[in-house]
Design a protein around this nucleic acid. Structure first.
Length: 272
DNA sequence: CGTCCCACCTGATTGC
DNA sequence: TGCAATCAGGTGGGAC
């Protein structure tokens, strides 16, 4: 479900609500697929800890906690990956937990942080040290570093943008939207793009992500932030989800194809 | 190692 | 209306 702008919106919203709160106990559904760290270990590590910070790294929500019990215990990173349908919501116990709730952190003030995930593609785990993610941050990466990511690569630029060990945080929507804004066809081999095209792509990506964060992300079906609010960037989508409809720039029908197994949208006129 | 493709799940929508 | 097929914002592992 969520890509960088959606994950950032959720992380910021949860941070505002729970920073400084103390986790008193943890409940888990025990569904094995959801837990990269065994549920019992998660419950033990997070119970009686204080939430120092909630932030985004790539598409992962990082909840940094300090264990209370063991005096000078080092802070710990609790990682929440939302997969396609995951949600992280702050609620009060009088609101019944929705179906597919897989983890609940009970806070000392009575509120709960709930992880809900119908398709169970999401993952919960503890990081060994400070989590830095698998790749580079698309919002802050420099020009030379960006260009170097794609050198010599034969895969389609669209597929390369989705490769999290290169750039983390970019998903299907923002790959398509940034390629449109840069005027680059998604099927082009990544290593064949010119320096000028890659610089355009870097700028397009930064602009698209910044604008999407500003609008609270894209709500394509059921994505909501920590407060249950929808995002509004989908209104500004130029190509994603617009197959067959006229290009907003030139009127040519937007094409929908499959690249790297993912639905891919582009304008055959504007993107070369 | 780089790349491709499919499995992993549930639910909403489309099509017959 | 009813039921089956198709599709979905993501990853990770196996095959080549």
């Amino acid at each position: 479900m969520p890509e960088l702008p959606e994950v950032e919106t959720i992380a910021n919203g949860v941070h505002q609500r729970v920073v400084g709160a103390r986790i008193t106990s943890v409940w888990t559904s025990g569904k094995p697929q959801t837990f990269k760290t065994p549920p019992a270990a998660l419950e033990a590590a997070l119970s009686d800890s204080t939430i120092l910070e909630v932030k985004r790294v790539g598409k992962t929500i990082v909840m940094r906690v300090r264990p209370e019990s063991a005096g000078d215990a080092a802070p710990l990173d609790f990682l929440i990956h939302l997969g396609m349908t995951g949600r992280l919501v702050v609620a009060t116990p009088d609101v019944p937990p929705p179906p597919h709730t897989h983890a609940v952190l009970s806070l000392a003030d009575g509120r709960e942080v709930r992880f809900v995930d119908p398709r169970r593609f999401g993952r919960l785990s503890l990081a060994a040290g400070t989590y830095t993610g698998p790749g580079a941050e698309p919002t802050t990466i420099g020009e030379q570093e960006f260009i170097a990511l794609f050198r010599g690569r034969k895969l389609a630029i669209k597929a390369a943008l989705l490769h999290q060990s290169l750039l983390h945080g970019v998903g299907n929507i923002y790959a398509d939207e940034s390629l449109f804004r840069a005027g680059i066809r998604p099927t082009r081999p990544a290593g064949r793009l010119t320096r000028a095209e890659l610089l355009r792509l870097r700028e397009a990506l930064r602009a698209v992500l910044a604008r999407a964060i500003q609008l609270g992300g894209s709500s394509v079906s059921d994505y909501v932030d920590a407060e249950g609010m929808r995002g509004y960037f989908q209104i500004e989508h130029a190509v994603y989800g617009r197959g067959g409809q006229p290009c907003k720039t030139c009127g040519t029908p937007v094409k929908k194809i499959v690249v790297g197994g993912r639905g891919t949208h582009y304008c055959p006129q504007c993107q070369r």
